[in-house]
């Protein structure tokens, strides 16, 4: 089983995140980079599938040099090797052009199943899985909270607002996962030490037959026109209980139409 996990490095949600004023892209210098949390669940699922069915887990990342930290973490968790697509031409790619670039790499390296988190904590478009499956011409299973491989097909539970759907798809397929699917393992120290000896293949756009005109800021179909800081949170209202606290809280909730 040839399992590929798409991993994105995102700014740590615990630190202050900023956009650059010059080209309105993410300021990667301003925040510590971490592996996108949902992608850790995808790595865990890939390792679980490998442990049950054999095969190899490849980590695929598109991002600047610094994204190698996230690759290292996925390898430390137990992935076998990595492909790092890194090229100045990719800077500023939107979801559509990112899906194009990743699909080109996936066509080149081949796969039985592609796993990824259902969304990233930075851009939060949640569209990459669908776009990838369309570009690759394979089934998409999104928002999976359970995946079982059965020979040349997979069965999954797909999380919905009302419960879950049971879906089946033939392989190869693209699967995006939600955090209910598993509990990602900690990288053990042995895993961390072993990770530095695992192969990481570096690719530039030309290596993956990516048309540079279709990626990056110039190739993006969407544009960040403007941005502003979120307004500071308003100070909460404190209700002092002078015998009528319950009534006041109820009145407040009613005024906001909660009750």
């Amino acid at each position: 089983m040839n399992i590929v996990v798409c991993v994105k490095q995102v700014p740590d949600t615990a630190t202050e995140r900023k956009l650059r004023s010059d080209d309105k892209t993410l300021d990667r210098e301003a925040a510590d980079g971490v592996i996108n949390e949902l992608d850790e669940y995808a790595v865990e699922e890939a390792l679980t599938i490998k442990e049950a069915h054999g095969g190899e887990v490849t980590v695929l990342t598109m991002g600047p040099e610094k994204a190698s930290e996230s690759i290292r973490k996925a390898l430390a968790m137990g992935a076998d090797k990595a492909v790092h697509l890194s090229d100045e031409a990719l800077h500023g790619s939107d979801a559509l052009s990112t899906s194009y670039a990743l699909a080109q790499v996936l066509k080149k390296i081949g796969f039985d199943i592609v796993l990824l988190g259902s969304e990233s904590t930075d851009a939060r478009t949640g569209m990459l899985a669908a776009m990838l499956s369309e570009r690759l011409g394979v089934p998409q299973v999104t928002l999976a909270n359970k995946v079982e491989i059965d020979g040349s097909s997979l069965k999954a539970q797909r999380l919905t607002d009302y419960g879950f759907d049971r879906v089946e798809a033939s392989l190869p397929a693209v699967v995006s996962v939600v955090e209910k699917i598993n509990e990602p393992r900690y990288p053990s120290f042995k895993g961390i030490m072993a990770a530095k000896k695992k192969p990481v293949e570096k690719l530039a756009v030309a290596d993956a037959e990516i048309d540079a005109a279709k990626v990056g800021l110039a190739g993006a179909s969407t544009e960040v026109v403007d941005f502003a800081d979120a307004p500071p949170r308003e100070k909460g209202q404190i209700v002092k209980d002078e015998g009528d606290g319950g009534v006041k809280v109820a009145e407040f909730l009613a005024s906001k139409k909660f009750i």
């Binding site: 430390a76 900690y186 961390i192 990770a195 530095k196």
Partner: peptide, 9 residues
């Protein structure tokens, strides 16, 4: 990077 991973674990 390796030392940071150890720290995080």
């Amino acid at each position: 990077d390796e030392e940071r991973l150890v720290r995080d674990t």
